[in-house]
Write a protein that binds this DNA or RNA. Structure first.
Lengths: 133, 133, 133, 133
DNA sequence: GTGGTCTAGACCACA
DNA sequence: GTGGTCTAGACCACT
């Protein structure tokens, strides 16, 4: 399991992790009982502070999404079943709504905006949103 | 000219202004030479501090998008044609790319994501993205 | 007589005028009794506010360098004889001293700095110093 | 690392900092990855407001010359090689070009101007340029 | 510890 | 009228 982290992005690192776990859990790509990479492993891999990863995990634990298994690290909580389509939509909508407002301000037609989105869906490269210059 | 400001959003106010001017300039809705509302006017209208508005304008000036007409106010730079102000697509793509990655992590199909985006384009309500809790 | 005015520069317009008249008078390029261009002419030629030109002339009058001849406009005061070389140097030194400090911070040798200055002396084009981005 | 700040000069403090960092980066005296003194440290050392320092750093970040290491401080951007930071000559030329035009207006010969510049290079004392009266 | 953001208010300078 | 600059102090967020 790899997190997709952009240290220079505007969204704080701990939040990038939290949001990603939420989404992976909602989609079922992370199954109940599945182990998460250790704090140290994540920290080392992305050259970030272990405290940052730990903070993210702690938040997810407080939320009930993760469980601490002694000596084993964190695993996805058994109760964390994949979400219904509606719930998934709720996690995605804010981002899309923001993009939609931007498209309007840019004077793009709905068709143009959708074409651009389609391109992004097919090409998963490119950077994170809201980066500071 | 009115800015669309959400004081409670996670994105700082000054940045909301900066981003909006960029998009309005790129779309041509703000023509080169056009006057921007005065710092004091914007501040009063949205009940925010003049310095916050001033900060946004200063950044845009440093960026070359705005020019100071001394003692008169700020105008959109003559050189800031919609083309020069940056591709519309370039201003929108980061947000869409981020949303696309989220959709993948949620296990949504491209069609599902597109449908949700379509809904957002037609319903301009809803909140700003990336709000902190 | 033409003033060399850069409306976008950091130094205020009125001060650009004041300093220029001082230098032209010190050098003798503007002789005692010589007429200065009218406020309206300068304002129109450079698309600046007549009040700005007027302010500059008033300051120079208060300084004794200009005299108001009724119906004739401003003329250089009879008492304004060309300055000695030492005085001219005094008007130029601050600018050169600032440039010298910059050269040091840039790690340029004296020879390199002088070569660059020599180039500037021979090519009178290029922009004003201290422009805001 | 110490900044050279003149609180009484006409050039605003934040701009003195910005310009100095630019020059130190261009000269290589500040290497990519090097840490800058903290906002609070600079503020305390020169008895100025932290926001003033912060403003300078923010501008330099927007410019791409500095990068924020969250929670740690600012470092010179990795991409900011002396070359990329802008030609040394480009940073010095505007000041020299302005001085050259002044010299012409003063009726000084190139040799006289050069001699005066030479003196300034050897005597690093003297005041900042463009002080308002 | 770090920087970011905003406020409130002051004073200046320019046109 | 306009924006620019700085201060003092608050609170937040990240590491």
């Amino acid at each position: 399991m790899n997190f997709d982290i952009a240290p220079a992005a505007a969204t704080p690192i701990y939040r990038q992790i939290v949001d990603q776990v939420r989404r992976l859990a909602a989609s079922g790509q992370l199954a109940p009982g599945a182990e998460l990479p250790s704090v140290r492993a994540v920290a080392q891999q992305h050259a970030i502070n272990p405290m940052t990863v730990s903070k993210a995990y702690s938040l997810l634990e407080a939320e009930g999404l993760l469980q601490r298994r002694r000596g084993l690290g964190m695993v996805l909580a058994e109760a964390a079943t994949p979400a219904a389509a509606g719930d998934k939509a709720a996690l995605l909508r804010p981002a899309l709504a923001g993009a939609a407002r931007m498209a309007k301000q840019l004077g793009l037609s709905d068709a143009e905006a959708q074409a651009l989105f389609q391109a992004c869906l097919q090409d998963p490269s490119s950077k994170a949103p809201y980066e500071h210059d």
